[in-house]
Nucleic acid binder design. Structure first.
Lengths: 152, 152
DNA sequence: CCTTGAGTTGAAGTTGACTTCAGCTTGCAG
DNA sequence: CTGCAAGCTGAAGTCAACTTCAACTCAAGG
């Protein structure tokens, strides 16, 4: 009761549903000891792992990538503040890139709102002189399938 | 051939796969005439609708919401630049909000990288004096399930 | 006319991140 | 010692946004 948390407690403390915690465990994101009766008992340090997972998700990282990152933590000792800082720092770049992309989209949108044209290809992307009626492989409208923002 | 596009042509021009265009049609996002032989023929104006869909997706809007927005366009006439501008402007706010949230996350992350604590709840969220060992309903770590960035 | 690439359909499959369910077992308060 | 909330498992379901598939049909060049 002092050194470990039940799944319900970890859930309450982390704000992550028990089903999600079990799911994370299956994916190897967190680990738990078991009681004699096969119930999970979490070390307090797992709370930090869960925090890392949630923060990373907000940055737009997939659970798979998060797992890879967590796997790079030292296995032989409890991770230090520096360990966590190093991990978080790698996301920082990704986050900056997302913000950059979204800001660009906003600016493009601003420009296009002005003229109502909605063809970012003519307004802001390459293919400068090509009208919609042009021949050839035709400029791709907008980005293919990426760099958006998650459903809020 | 002058006033209409085949699905392949619309696909090439918009950068959206034919299967996706058919899917959009099922959802009521775009419309098509049919030839005698039941093939789709798209008016040129549909290109702009597809552009709107893609841009909106990048802002993080769901197809369902996009459909609702598109439904608000005047049905009786071809939408004008102002119509499109009005629609786009409504997303602008959402986009700003996303950028704001991500920027806050980045700043929080910066702060936490410094100390390696990873408990945004202690660093930047409410619950100022509450340590992880505190009693009670326990501060939620991080956001519940929202406001992230899509998988890039 | 014939071939061939492009198009059609409904149904089923995919991916990621979970949740829900059914059927049982544990653990603790009274 | 008993009752019952909390936990366990594997399998199946969900949701969004598509893609893939099988089994055709169309359209246009030679």
């Amino acid at each position: 009761m002092y050194e470990s948390l039940t799944i319900g407690q970890l859930s309450t403390r982390s704000g992550v549903a028990p089903s999600a915690l079990r799911y994370y465990e299956r994916l190897g994101l967190i680990r738990a000891e078991r009681t004699g009766g096969n119930q999970r008992r979490y070390a307090r340090t797992e709370l930090r792992r869960v925090a890392f997972v949630r923060i990373s998700q907000q940055v737009g990282i997939s659970l798979e990538e998060i797992r890879e990152a967590l796997d790079s933590l030292p296995a032989s000792r409890v991770p230090t503040a520096e360990d966590w800082a190093r991990l978080s720092a790698t996301w920082r770049e990704r986050l900056d890139e997302k913000i950059r992309l979204m800001t660009k989209l906003r600016d493009d949108l601003d420009g296009c709102i002005g003229c109502g044209c909605l063809s970012l290809q003519r307004c802001t992307l390459n293919n400068p002189g090509d009208s919609l009626a042009g021949e050839g492989p035709g400029a791709r409208l907008v980005q293919p399938r990426a760099a958006g923002v998650s459903p809020s």
